[in-house]
Amino acid sequence: MIRYPALNKPVKIGVTAPSSGLHREDHHLLEEAVYRMEEKGFRVVVGQTCWTEFKSKSAHAKSRAEELNLMLQDPSIQFIFPPWGGELLIEILEYMEFDKITPKWILGYSDISTLLLAITLKSGIATAHGTNLVDLRGQVSDPTTAQWEKVLFMKKGEEVIQYPSEKYQLRWQHDDVTDWVYHLSEPTKWKTIKNTPLYIKGRLLGGCIDVIRHLIGTPFGDVRHFQQQYINNEPIIWFFENCQLTVTDLRRTLVQMKLAGWFDHCSGILFGRSAAKESVHDYHILDVYMELAEELTIPIAYDFDCGHMPPQLTLINGAYAEVRVYNNNGNMVKQIFK
């Protein structure tokens, strides 16, 4: 059975950097985001790891794990919100005290999805894939991003429906400040292979494929155990977003996942928008999606609101979901906390 964290006001947020922290010149980004959270009525405590960054990590792996473990075990903290992702979160997993974790929300994406997926697979505790804290530093949030609050304040047994964004961001423009941080300029359109309608049900699992692939073959990536122990072998809906993998590297990764059994009892796959889709010779990203759909005989959707081309939905690892994609009309993701 999936365990869902519950938020009760006033909510105290613990901010820690299990992957990358912030260089001094970027401290204002976190300070602004914390201010916005406090404006909303959240209490915020910021860990020491957030203020440092050296050799692609906020601190030594043991230090990062210790701060995270303390926040996860602190009964006064209901919600863990890293500032952003990074590169080397996987270093901390061997030092984490998974057996002492009590259900509390962790929200993030990119490298943070390594932590999210590992916790859900090992403990059956739901985790939240969505916006970074520093991306909430704007005066307002776009409607898609703003859904994170509604989703995380849900109680067990409740449901929420999210719809496609109207527009998405093609590229980051940090030197051009907007009220809601992003520069949403391109029309959003969820798509399916061969434009066939998609309607699937199952338990959501996923994250940034660049990093979660490294859980395969480790104690932190045992999908089969998760299926048997926590969801009674219900089908899984995988959601992936590709930050930097080449088309051929993405293909290799998906084949490895297939061989490792990650796609057993899979009802469908959702791929987020990606800037990393340049063809390798005559091999295209659509070739990857079509080959996988044929091999697994499952439906696949792509250009989903998920990942490094925001905005993105708030997707809960472990939640029961129903997903519909039909010619950009009536598209939705329903999540039920059951």
Rank of each mutant, 00 (worst) to 15 (best):
L184I: 00
K167I: 00
E158V: 03
R171T: 01
W172C: 08
D176R: 09
T192G: 13
D142K: 12
Q147M: 09
S165T: 04
V140N: 12
H174F: 09
V134P: 13
T145I: 03
R171A: 07
V151S: 03
L198I: 14
V134S: 15
T131H: 09
K122V: 00
V181D: 11
Y199Q: 14
T188Y: 11
P187M: 03
W148T: 06
P143E: 06
H129C: 14
Q139N: 11
T144N: 11
H183G: 14
V181Q: 13
W172N: 13
S123G: 09
Q169N: 07
V140G: 04
H183P: 06
Y163S: 02
E186P: 04
T145Q: 12
R137I: 01
L198V: 15
E186S: 12
T145F: 00
S123Y: 03
L170A: 12
A146Y: 03
V140L: 11
V134A: 10
Q147Y: 04
K150G: 03
T131G: 09
Q169D: 04
I161M: 04
E158F: 06
K189D: 11
V181I: 12
Y168W: 15
E186R: 12
S185K: 07
E166W: 02
V181A: 14
G138I: 02
Y199W: 04
N195M: 10
W180K: 13
D175A: 06
S141P: 00
L136Q: 15
Q162H: 07
W148L: 04
G157M: 05
P143N: 10
P143T: 00
I125A: 11
R137K: 15
L152W: 06
H174I: 01
V177K: 14
V151H: 04
G130T: 00
I161L: 02
V140K: 14
T196W: 05
L198Y: 06
F153P: 08
K156V: 06
S185E: 15
T196E: 15
L170S: 12
T145E: 11
P187V: 02
E186C: 05
W172I: 00
W172E: 07
L170V: 03
D142N: 15
V140A: 14
T145L: 03
H174G: 12
D135F: 05
H174D: 08
Y163C: 00
Y168A: 02
G130F: 05
Y163D: 00
L152E: 04
S123N: 12
N195W: 05
L152K: 03
S141G: 06
K167M: 02
M154R: 05
Y163M: 01
K122Y: 06
D176H: 08
K156F: 00
Q139I: 01
L133H: 10
N132P: 01
S185M: 07
V160A: 06
D176N: 11
K156T: 10
H129G: 07
R137N: 12
N132Q: 11
H174Y: 08
P164Y: 03
Q169T: 01
H183W: 09
T188L: 02
G138N: 10
K191I: 03
V160C: 08
Y182K: 14
W172G: 10
K150F: 00
W190I: 01
N195F: 06
